[in-house]
């Protein structure tokens, strides 16, 4: 029995010790290693270096000397933040316990072209329905929907209700200004009401390996039409501004493939890469764009989509209680 116990004990300690040999060693958790790992993962997985013409090696040469073993967490975070901001990508962020990197220049450097408070007081006039998360009302004989976030779910019942409500009206305005994105499935749920057949809406490629040219095959993405629901085949006016980002930008890209849709307002903010996540040894998490999304004609949507009709709203317009973007849409809608 004693011998058997020896065997069991020997096997136990031998396998326990094996792990130290067989499993990959931990990188050290110091500022230099954390910086290097962040740079390396971005270098291997970020999808827009070529499109944005960024020399990531030279970025390393510029920022790496700023980090040493004595760099504290806040200093390290700020160095990483400055490095990541070079990418000008709203899908790139870094999250620690004390701060989050974001890229507000996407919209702060441009006119806002949206004032919800004024819109609500002057155009919605306290007399609107909120169906699910869709604000909707008839404005001057035109159907109007405001959808503020793709994080908020849109159901088939919501869409059936709203589109039925407007079925006698000549056109529909979908206002997605300041919609920063969320779940693309709601974009598909909306567009399937507007198309009469399976439609090629965009192209998509994943980063598929660490090399700069390693991408998956170009995949054509289609939206399908839906039967037995309320459909809309009359004109649609889509209102956008620079704060339309990510899934909302994707929705705008998809709407470009629908013939009866006209985009009015400002450029969208962009965000044409699906964000993927990773983490550093110190526990900080970060996101990066991992795909390239393009229109059927090959145009990459990362930096935003131009409107068919460019209209701006000035601070004076807001002060005067005027929304020229919405006004232009109403004007065109009434002409149908």
């Amino acid at each position: 029995m004693k011998q058997i116990l020896y065997i069991c004990f020997g096997v136990l300690i031998s396998f326990a010790a094996c792990e130290e040999v067989l499993i990959e060693k931990n990188p050290s958790n110091d500022p230099v290693t954390n910086f290097d790992i962040l740079w390396r993962i971005m270098n291997e997985r970020y999808s827009f270096f070529e499109y944005k013409n960024i020399d990531w090696d030279s970025v390393y040469d510029e920022y790496r000397p700023l980090v040493s073993q004595s760099t504290n967490d806040v200093e390290l975070f700020d160095i990483m933040k400055d490095m990541l901001r070079i990418l000008e990508d709203g899908h790139v962020n870094l999250r620690s316990d004390f701060d989050i990197v974001r890229f507000p220049d996407l919209y702060l450097d441009y006119p806002q072209n949206f004032d919800r408070d004024m819109l609500e007081r002057v155009y919605w006039e306290k007399d609107y329905r909120i169906t699910g998360f869709l604000v909707n009302r008839e404005i001057q004989g035109v159907g109007y929907i405001y959808y503020g976030s793709f994080v908020a779910s849109v159901t088939d019942d919501d869409l059936d209700f709203v589109l039925s409500r407007f079925e006698d009206l000549p056109a529909l305005i979908i206002d997605i200004r300041n919609n920063e994105g969320g779940d693309p499935q709601y974009a598909f749920r909306m567009i399937e009401r507007l198309i009469s057949r399976r439609t090629h809406v965009y192209n998509h490629q994943f980063k598929s390996g660490p090399g700069p040219d390693e991408f998956s095959e170009l995949e054509e993405i289609y939206a399908n039409t839906k039967n037995n629901v309320v459909k809309w085949n009359k004109p649609v006016y889509l209102l956008t501004n620079r704060n339309v980002y990510s899934a909302a930008n994707l929705f705008t890209a998809m709407m470009k493939a629908v013939p009866q849709v006209t985009q009015i307002g400002d450029f969208t903010g962009g965000g044409g890469g699906v964000p993927a996540g990773a983490e550093l040894p110190n526990g900080w998490a970060f996101n990066y764009s991992s795909t390239i999304l393009s229109l059927p004609d090959g145009f990459i949507v990362e930096n935003g989509l131009a409107p068919d009709i460019f209209v701006e709203q000035t601070p004076q317009d807001v002060a005067n209680g005027v929304d020229p973007i919405l006004d232009r849409a109403i004007e065109l809608a009434k002409a149908n």
């Binding site: 499935q185 598929s208 994707l250 996540g277 795909t291």
Partner: peptide, 10 residues
Amino acid sequence: YVSVYNFVNP
């Protein structure tokens, strides 16, 4: 490679 399910393709 990027551990992302292809949710942008319905």
